[in-house]
Simulated assay, not measured.
Amino acid sequence: MDKEELIKLVTKRVIEKIKDYDAYKVPIGVSNRHVHVSRQDLDILYGKGYELTKKADLKQPGQFASNETVTIRGPKGEFERVRILGPVRKQSQVEVSKTDSFRLGIRPLIKESGDLEGTPGLELIGPEGTVSLSSGTIVALRHIHMTPGQALAMGLKDKDMVEVEVFGERRGVFGDVLVRVSDQFALEMHVDVDEANAFSLSNGDHVVIRKSGKDCQSRFTIRERR
């Protein structure tokens, strides 16, 4: 192979690699501590019939950060002005980081949103009342939201677990990233503040779903979640 042919081959492979990254590139959303509330609990915290008011839309369709906040209190400490995300849910849920849990004095499990079995509770304190949750506090399992079309294009399905590669000054790999698929979602990977800081990630940064080394042309590092 002469020099010109070698340059063409290398250029071709670089272009293919760039296209490959673009196909599986996912934007990052960093989640700070926040609260989801039920209709019943919102009535206690802010008054009967109170409606959340929108501060800003979130990337996921229909989801928003509200102007309303609460204090979350654990056995050892508390955080004030923790934002409520809307709309209301069937069950109240508090999402914190592992670092937050030390100050609160609790031991939350790493869980998928909505899976609250066996989780510790907290006090939610609003301007009109206090709610004592017997359960519902989690460290959210890192996950990727995507549409069915995007999942199909990537060869993924709902509940798959993948590896995600981070580039930049703190390059590394996230393991055990849950894939969540719905036509109500927009493409985005959610990590908490601890995870974002460990990899020097900010909102809007991009990561890449990593392919398996065994067959880097067609296979991802994927396993089904049990």
Rank of each mutant, 00 (worst) to 15 (best):
E68D: 07
R83A: 06
Q40S: 15
K90I: 10
V94Q: 01
V96F: 01
S38I: 02
E80L: 12
D22W: 11
K76Y: 10
Y50A: 13
K76A: 14
Q93C: 05
Q91I: 14
E51Q: 14
G29N: 03
V88Y: 05
T71I: 11
D100E: 12
K90P: 09
V88N: 06
E68C: 06
Y24H: 15
I15K: 15
T69S: 09
T71W: 11
K55Y: 14
V14D: 04
S31L: 06
V88T: 11
G47R: 10
V94N: 00
G74N: 02
S97P: 05
F79Q: 10
S97N: 06
I84W: 00
A65K: 01
V88C: 08
Q40K: 13
G86E: 07
S97V: 09
P27W: 00
R39H: 15
V70H: 02
I72R: 05
S31N: 03
E80D: 15
V88G: 00
K12S: 12
S31Y: 12
K12D: 12
V30I: 04
I18D: 02
R73V: 11
R39E: 10
Y50K: 09
P87F: 00
K98E: 14
Y46K: 08
Y21C: 10
Y21V: 12
L85M: 08
E51D: 14
Q40P: 02
V70N: 04
I84T: 03
K54F: 10
T99G: 12
H36G: 05
A23R: 15
